[in-house]
Structures are given as structure tokens and as C-alpha cells.
């Protein structure tokens, strides 16, 4: 199996706090890989590292065998045209209509005529079920619609890799179902490689081909959905069942509560 992205011995820290400690991952080509973990563990950070927006302290990230952290800026920009990212908030440009948002990458990176662009935009909007909303402004969309519009923009240039940052968070069950179906359909139809970052266990088990679970600065479990479900690791089982108490600390690192409440004695 060919890998699109290979992460080797990556370490990363932010404001002195270690987020990743020497971890390695593989993102196979043409498959959907899920990265799971509790909030604040650094899932968004991982996507930014893959996109070259952050640089690792040590270790390497390879995209098609080419090291992302060591790329020159111009080369990085070329490589980024092959990937696209669906941000947690959607990140639609608030000063443009939905139509212009989706046309934006086409206008910036291609020399297509306005007619062709209009056709492509309509097709992409149709795919996410928002063709009727083309002339609305982003502020007139609901959260779910904005996420779908952003997805249409993310696939406008037919990238090879899409990174989804928490696509299901804050969605009603119907939108969630629609999104799950969309991601699946995109993958099957376009032979895309997808990286889905999430903490929604049930959805992931239905769409992912391979799953990584992050906690405690490390990969605590990985495998196909079947393997994960049947894992005998207590860490993995705690995460799947959503238990606060267990081997994975639910609290952000802090001092002893008793000391904090009663005052330090020294």
C-alpha cells in the first residue's frame, strides 16, 4: 500500500508544552484515515503540521516522499495546491457570496473563463446540496450549511488530499448524516485521500479505513475500525466508551487540587 503522507519520529511543543513526543503515522493513498483524540490533544495542530503551517521541533513529515518542513516556500505553495483543508469553522471569506467563495481558488489558480468557473462552481454546490444558496453571504448560512459550502470550496480544485478538521462537531444529526455520506462519496468517486480529525466515535467507525487514536502526546492505538473496536487496550476502550475516569487524564495538566484550593504551604 502506497503512503501519501509519512510522519516519522515527530516531536512538537508549543509555548514550552510538549504536544507530540516522537510519534510516527502513515496516511495511505486513496483511503480515509481518521485521527481521533480528546479535545486539546493537538489534532488541529497535526493538520497544520501536515500543511506546513507549523514546523516540527524534530522528525519529518513527507508528502509523496518530499519533506514538508524542509521545503522552500515556493515549493510548499505548489504542494499545497494538491491538498486542501476544511477548517473547523469553515473559514468562508465573509466579504464574498457563497458562489464567489467557491470560485475563489479557481480564479486564483487557474486561467479558466468565467463561464467554465460558473459551471464548476454550480457542480460543486450541487454536490453538497447548496446550489440554491449560491448568492447568499456566509453570514446568512447556518453552521451546517457553512461547513458544506466550505467543503465545496475545498474540493473546487480537485485536490488529492483533503484534511477535515472536526467536520461533525456541532452538527445536527441530519447534517451529520449528510456530511458522512458526502465524505464517503467524495472518496469513492474521486479516489481522494482523506484525513478526518474528530472525536465522534460512531461516525468515524463507519467511514474510516484506518484509525489513529492520540492521547498523552503519543499514538495510543491504531488499526482498522474492526481492530480498534476489538482492541484490548484499556486506553482505547476508555476513549471509545467516553469515560472520564481511566488511564487517559481528562484534566489539563495542573497541580494537585487540594494544594490549589487550600493554598500552597511553602
Amino acid at each position: 500500500m502506497e503512503n501519501l503522507i509519512e510522519i516519522d519520529n515527530l516531536s512538537f511543543s508549543r509555548s514550552g508544552r510538549t504536544i507530540y513526543d516522537n510519534i510516527s503515522m502513515r496516511i495511505p493513498k486513496g483511503k480515509t484515515t481518521a485521527i481521533m483524540g480528546p479535545s486539546g490533544i493537538g489534532k488541529t495542530t497535526m493538520l497544520r503540521l501536515m500543511g506546513g503551517q507549523l514546523l516540527p521541533d524534530s522528525g519529518d513529515i513527507k508528502f509523496k516522499g518530499e519533506s514538508i518542513p524542509n521545503m522552500r516556500r515556493t515549493r510548499l505553495f505548489e504542494v499545497r495546491r494538491q491538498m486542501s483543508m476544511l477548517f473547523q469553522s469553515g473559514a468562508l471569506f465573509t466579504d464574498m457570496s457563497v458562489f464567489d467563495n467557491i470560485a475563489f481558488p479557481l480564479r486564483e489558480h487557474t486561467k479558466l473563463s468565467e463561464d467554465t468557473i460558473a459551471t464548476i462552481v454550480k457542480l460543486k454546490l450541487q454536490a453538497v446540496g447548496l446550489r440554491g444558496a449560491a448568492q447568499l453571504m456566509p453570514c446568512e448560512l447556518s453552521g451546517g450549511m457553512a461547513r458544506r459550502a466550505a467543503l465545496a470550496r475545498a474540493i473546487a480544485l480537485d485536490p488529492e488530499l483533503i484534511m477535515y478538521d472536526e467536520p461533525f462537531a456541532g452538527q445536527d444529526p441530519i447534517s451529520m448524516g449528510v456530511l458522512v455520506k458526502l465524505i464517503k462519496a467524495l472518496n469513492d468517486a474521486l479516489q481522494l485521500t482523506s484525513v478526518v480529525v474528530t472525536h465522534d466515535v460512531t461516525e468515524v467507525l463507519t467511514i474510516a479505513d484506518y484509525i489513529y487514536i492520540l492521547a498523552d502526546q503519543k499514538v495510543i492505538g491504531s488499526g482498522t475500525p474492526e481492530e480498534i473496536k476489538n482492541s484490548d487496550s484499556p486506553l482505547v476502550q476508555q476513549f471509545l466508551q467516553g469515560l472520564a475516569d481511566g488511564p487517559v487524564p481528562f484534566h489539563y495538566p495542573a497541580g494537585d487540587l487540594q494544594t490549589a484550593l487550600l493554598g500552597a504551604s511553602c
Binding site: 497544520r48 500543511g51 503551517q53 505553495f77 505548489e78 499545497r80 495546491r81 491538498m83 486542501s84 483543508m85 477548517f87 473547523q88 469553522s89 473559514a91 468562508l92 471569506f93 465573509t94 475563489f104 481558488p105 486564483e108 489558480h109
Partner: peptide, 18 residues
């Protein structure tokens, strides 16, 4: 600042636009 907070700037960067 709001463009930054709503990830619009990051989003531009990921679209390979400076």
C-alpha cells in the same frame, strides 16, 4: 484580526495564497 480568528488567513495559506 477577525479574519485571523475565523481562520480565513490560515485558509488562504492552505490554498497556497499568501
Amino acid at each position: 484580526g477577525l479574519m485571523k480568528a475565523t481562520e480565513q488567513l490560515s485558509s488562504l495559506e492552505m490554498m497556497a495564497i499568501d
